[in-house]
């Protein structure tokens, strides 16, 4: 590992690694199957609706009777060729919007989508401003600094005496 390759040679091997990695990702993304069908679609749909009696569990996860009913409903609808929107609308009609596990991006629940973005941007801005601080360069030493240094120097012999 300590053998140093010339810089150009290492750049080349990085490029090869990068191309290889991207092509692997491309193979993985594009060869996966198209839209979900049959059992897989039923399975997926039952993970996005909430069990109305439980806190935040999907009907796929919950063992409650009402979840079994909703799972059965989804399965019947999918096999009858209903679209995702039809299933969604019908479930909201029966159980209210609380049946949605993902809060809709409208009304009051818009907050849970916008606030994280604001916080992330704010946090990133804070980090950038901390990183930028070096741009001010070194400021000249003040009297307070000089005092700190002399205080620290006084303590050096003291700390050596300590066993």
């Amino acid at each position: 590992m300590s053998t140093k390759k010339p810089f150009e040679q290492r750049t080349l091997s990085w490029v090869i690694l990068g191309v290889f990695a991207l092509s692997l990702l491309a193979v993985a993304s594009f060869s996966s199957s198209g839209p979900l069908e049959g059992d897989d679609r039923i399975q997926y749909l039952s993970t996005i609706y909430a069990c109305p009696q439980c806190q935040g569990q999907s009907v796929a996860e919950s063992n409650a009777a009402v979840s079994a009913t909703i799972r059965e409903f989804i399965s019947v609808k999918v096999n009858a060729g209903a679209s995702d929107e039809e299933i969604r609308d019908e479930l909201i009609r029966s159980y209210g919007s609380k049946v949605l596990l993902t809060p809709p991006a409208e009304g009051i629940s818009l907050v849970v989508w916008i606030l994280p973005v604001i916080v992330a941007v704010g946090g990133a801005a804070m980090v950038v401003s901390i990183l930028r601080r070096r741009d001010e360069g070194l400021r000249p030493a003040t009297e307070a600094d000089a005092e700190l240094v002399s205080q620290a120097l006084e303590q050096v012999p003291a700390s050596k005496e300590q066993p």
Binding site: T47, I48, A50, Q55, G56, Q57, S58, E61, G96, S97, K98, V99, L100, L101, T102, P103, G107, I108, S109, V112
Partner: peptide, 11 residues
């Protein structure tokens, strides 16, 4: 305002 909503796994 008494809104009932669920936040679960997909979020």
């Amino acid at each position: 305002n008494d809104t009932r909503l669920t936040i679960g796994r997909p979020y």
